[in-house]
Amino acid sequence: MKKNLKYNLIWLAIMIAGYIIINVLEFAGIMGQFAETTLVLIGINIILATGLNLIIGFSGQFSLGHAGFMAIGAYVCALITTAIPNALGMLLGLIAGAVFSGVVALVVGIPTLRLNGDYLAIATMGVAEIIRIILNNLKITNGPAGLYNIPMLATWPVVYLLVCITTIIIVNFIHSRDGRAVMSVREDEIAAESMGVNITKWKVIAFVVGAATAAIGGALHANYIQTIAPTDFGIMESINILIIVVLGGIGSITGTFVAAVVLGLLDMILQNFGTLRMVLYSLALILIMVFKPSGLLGTWELSIRRLFTRKSKTKGDA
């Protein structure tokens, strides 16, 4: 019991240390505005992709509709923060966006999650498209022009904090009894059901939690970029998030982190290459898929516990 507390405290320390290091770098002038933008975008991508990895990598349901849930979070939070342009508005916007998105996921998840593989992918893509078209036609969302002058409330400490919170929630969920049930659904639905696992329930829960996470990512996107339009949340955005998951390793949250950082940096470095950037970016993806189809990290996860037990084991051997 004490040990578990120790590992949790170590993770907490790492999170706080990360925050301090980035602050110091910024203070010392090593990190400029440009680097901070990169950092924020990486953070948002991490949030979006960990949620999608929960759905695809852990519950085994292939969703191509992540951008739709991201859009819900973005619009809900943008509207609320425009009305209440302060931290409270941001908090309300985040919660309302996540809840709204979760409810939509629940409603569409129950019928669609019965579908398998490609069919589910197409159905979720359709759901995202419907969300986009609704946003395109509503008055409150200002149609195709979208929303602008959204208050800049997603400062990088806010993004950093939310990366930590969503990661803790998702990782703890995956590594709990519930998470094991979710993974059994991915492994073999018939066997899982025969062991007493309510597979529909767990598929829907993973889908809802993933959608709520996407909404948080969307909310941060809206309040950082400050303008949003329905076209920002098309199929290409869903695919961009999917690329991070696949590249990092389907079923590895650590991999999602690594991939989001690598792609973010690649994007930044290639900024000066103009149109060549997209070619190089795509080429990098193709090369990784050819040489490491399971993604950069496969299903490997960083574990403090494992590091410690390995150390004590080698000590014992000596």
Partner: peptide, 30 residues
């Protein structure tokens, strides 16, 4: 029909899960 990519222990624990219900909150908050 085992859960092939999970450990031996996890295979057994999953089968025990239905009888050991857990609230979402207590597993997130540990």
């Amino acid at each position: 029909r085992l859960f092939k990519d999970l450990s031996v222990l996890d295979n057994v624990l999953i089968a025990m899960t239905a009888k050991h219900k857990e609230s979402f909150v207590s597993s997130i908050l540990r």
